[in-house]
Amino acid sequence: MAIPWHCFPFSAAAEMTTLHDYLREQATEGILPWTRQRRAMVRFGCTCYQVEEAALGLGILPARYQRNRETVSIEDQLTLLRSRVAVIGCGGLGGYVVEELARLGVGQLVVIDPDCFEEHNLNRQLFSLPANLGQAKVAAAQKRVAALNPAVTLLPLQETFNSDNGPELLAGVQLAVDCLDSIPVRLELAEVCEALNIPLVHGAIAGWYGQVTTQFPGDRTLQTLYQGRQPVKGVEQQLGNPSFTPAVIAGLEVAEACKVLLGKGETLRRRLLSIDLRLMQLHETTLTES
């Protein structure tokens, strides 16, 4: 059974028993409603994360995850809560990826992006608003996530990812999600993930088109895919990006992330899924190291 040892103010075993008893008593048919979860936080001086962790450890599901239930078991929900995922890039893809990971219940998010919102982001970037133009994208992400799922901690890093700072920025994460807009930086990310033994979910978009794949250490899928040809941008330079393409590709990336974290289902390992939303066609390419 999980013991939330870090509950504040004091985590004496007797008090923990009391929290556990309280959660058992407050749950109805294994579900803990938000008002009662809040009451437990106040009463025992615990964070939202700590109460959720204790509840899930007892087989009690915080009510916000009820509709996850057939997809994600209570045990899986606890695994997600204890997971730490890095999202690199917090623009079109990154906004939706952060939102979906937080709603899914991934407990710790490290979000990396050096940029502030500009007006041309408003057509697609989920956290961009006229009111926060000029503000850091990672700060907006943190505010959004705190409001939508207080159990999730988001570490905002307003930095440009590169191979020098990468190992430090990705320390302790179980998974990285590529939401970058630069091909050379993607390749640096792939190398850092390789060195740190971290799986990487890749997504990229341009206009009506997008692609997704998942690589595990040793696969070198992105290196194969981009084959050492390193223009900074792809055809998105001419095509731009509408609202729906990042939403679609981000959703697929989060589905991949969920499976990697839980070790379930079939991922896109060594397979590239290419999506054409104009003709509504999906294509799968087998990728082997070359």
Binding site: G94, I205, R229, P231, V232, G234, V235, T285, S290
Partner: peptide
């Protein structure tokens, strides 16, 4: 024929070649 190749790959009679543009946006 559904497998990723490089630019210098030689083609054979009956092959199917598929070309996709480079996508880099996020």
């Amino acid at each position: 024929n559904s497998r990723h190749v490089k630019l210098d790959q030689e083609l054979a009679d009956g092959d199917t070649l598929a070309l996709f543009p480079l996508l880099g946006g996020g």
